[in-house]
Amino acid sequence: MNVCPTCHRTDQSSRVTAIVRGGTSRGSGSGTSWHGGSFITSGPDSAYIGESTSHHEFSSHGQTDLARALTLDTGDRPSHAWFVVGGTALVLLLMIMFGLVDQVMWALLLGVALAVAVASGDARAGCGCLFLLLIVALIWELATGRDSRVVVDVLTYVAPVVALIGIGGGAIAWKRYNDEAPERARRLRVWSRLFHCSRDDLVFDPETGEYASVPQMDFLIDRLR
């Protein structure tokens, strides 16, 4: 029986997973807009811009306040973008070592572009890659009008550090994430059996009778097994 441990009734008790599922909405779609032609006049001259169409796609995600508060935080997966950044730095270092200086800048830009693309779904990783892009732009500016050796000299010192941070940091982050898999599975299992009583606005475990307020749900999950 899913009896609330404080009011000892069941009429206002609902499974947490059902509340989150019912209070979460997702949508997506696409459409086409038509733009009519028009004349643009500048002094004695005029030009006609023909009609055109544009295609657009959209997606939406919404949650009620209660569904958001009861959603289990399972942590973010590490981004693969840091492996791309570290791998690019390692490739650049090898290119410099083997004398492929003329192709270094193209490889650098390609690696950064790929890293930004991979990190597009991760805001923090995306910001990190964009910061790296600013460094690339700075290196490019330093090389403008000068011998390309400037770029090579800078990368000779920068590339090993970036390779170590990117590959090493990414490996550590993924190892930690994989090591925490059993704990995430336990938390998900406990969260899946919780109920919410709307009368007392609390979350409780029907198996043990333990309960907590909605903001304290994570602490309740930590206590349960």
Results as ranks from 00 to 15, higher is better:
residue 162 V to H: 00
residue 183 E to N: 14
residue 174 W to M: 09
residue 102 D to Q: 12
residue 200 D to T: 08
residue 206 P to G: 09
residue 196 H to S: 10
residue 169 G to Y: 10
residue 159 A to Y: 03
residue 124 R to Q: 11
residue 158 V to Y: 14
residue 104 V to R: 02
residue 166 G to S: 06
residue 218 D to N: 13
residue 119 A to C: 05
residue 106 W to D: 08
residue 166 G to L: 01
residue 215 P to G: 06
residue 143 A to C: 05
residue 146 R to T: 10
residue 107 A to K: 02
residue 220 L to P: 05
residue 142 L to R: 01
residue 213 S to R: 09
residue 132 L to G: 10
residue 197 C to W: 03
residue 126 G to I: 06
residue 164 L to W: 08
residue 101 V to T: 11
residue 153 D to C: 05
residue 183 E to S: 09
residue 188 L to H: 13
residue 134 L to R: 02
residue 100 L to C: 07
residue 191 W to N: 00
residue 203 V to S: 11
residue 135 I to F: 13
residue 160 P to E: 06
residue 202 L to K: 05
residue 135 I to N: 08
residue 142 L to I: 00
residue 154 V to R: 00
residue 117 A to E: 02
residue 221 I to L: 04
residue 100 L to M: 11
residue 169 G to N: 07
residue 145 G to H: 03
residue 183 E to Q: 11
residue 116 V to G: 00
residue 209 G to H: 10
residue 139 I to L: 04
residue 154 V to C: 00
residue 137 A to N: 01
residue 105 M to R: 04
residue 141 E to Y: 07
residue 154 V to Q: 01
residue 145 G to L: 03
residue 122 D to W: 04
residue 204 F to W: 07
residue 132 L to S: 08
residue 203 V to P: 08
residue 188 L to D: 09
residue 193 R to N: 13
residue 116 V to P: 00
residue 206 P to D: 04
residue 164 L to R: 01
residue 159 A to E: 06
residue 175 K to M: 15
residue 192 S to T: 10
residue 121 G to C: 05
residue 157 Y to C: 15
residue 154 V to A: 03
residue 101 V to R: 11
residue 214 V to Q: 12
residue 172 I to S: 08
residue 203 V to Y: 06
residue 177 Y to P: 09
residue 195 F to G: 08
residue 103 Q to R: 15
residue 104 V to G: 01
residue 199 R to F: 10
residue 124 R to H: 13
residue 124 R to F: 14
residue 140 W to C: 03
residue 133 L to Q: 01
residue 153 D to W: 09
residue 100 L to P: 05
residue 185 A to S: 15
residue 131 F to H: 11
residue 124 R to L: 14
residue 195 F to T: 08
residue 139 I to D: 01
residue 151 V to C: 07
residue 163 A to N: 03
residue 177 Y to D: 05
residue 161 V to E: 07
residue 175 K to N: 10
residue 118 V to F: 11
residue 166 G to C: 06
residue 212 A to L: 06
residue 125 A to W: 12
residue 121 G to N: 05
residue 208 T to V: 12
residue 158 V to L: 15
residue 119 A to W: 00
residue 181 A to S: 15
residue 158 V to D: 02
residue 210 E to Y: 12
residue 188 L to P: 04
residue 189 R to Q: 11
residue 217 M to L: 06
residue 209 G to W: 04
residue 108 L to F: 13
residue 171 A to F: 12
residue 147 D to R: 03
residue 169 G to H: 15
residue 188 L to I: 12
residue 143 A to F: 00
residue 136 V to N: 01
residue 103 Q to H: 14
residue 136 V to D: 01
residue 101 V to A: 14
residue 130 L to C: 06
residue 168 G to I: 10
residue 186 R to Q: 10
residue 153 D to M: 10
residue 122 D to N: 11
residue 194 L to Q: 02
residue 177 Y to V: 03
residue 166 G to M: 09
residue 184 R to S: 09
residue 153 D to Q: 14
residue 204 F to P: 02
residue 133 L to V: 04
residue 120 S to V: 12
residue 156 T to F: 07
residue 173 A to Q: 13
residue 177 Y to A: 12
residue 173 A to V: 11
residue 166 G to D: 14
residue 168 G to E: 11
residue 146 R to A: 14
residue 125 A to V: 04
residue 201 D to V: 08
residue 154 V to G: 00
residue 138 L to I: 13
residue 138 L to Q: 06
residue 195 F to S: 15
residue 150 V to I: 15
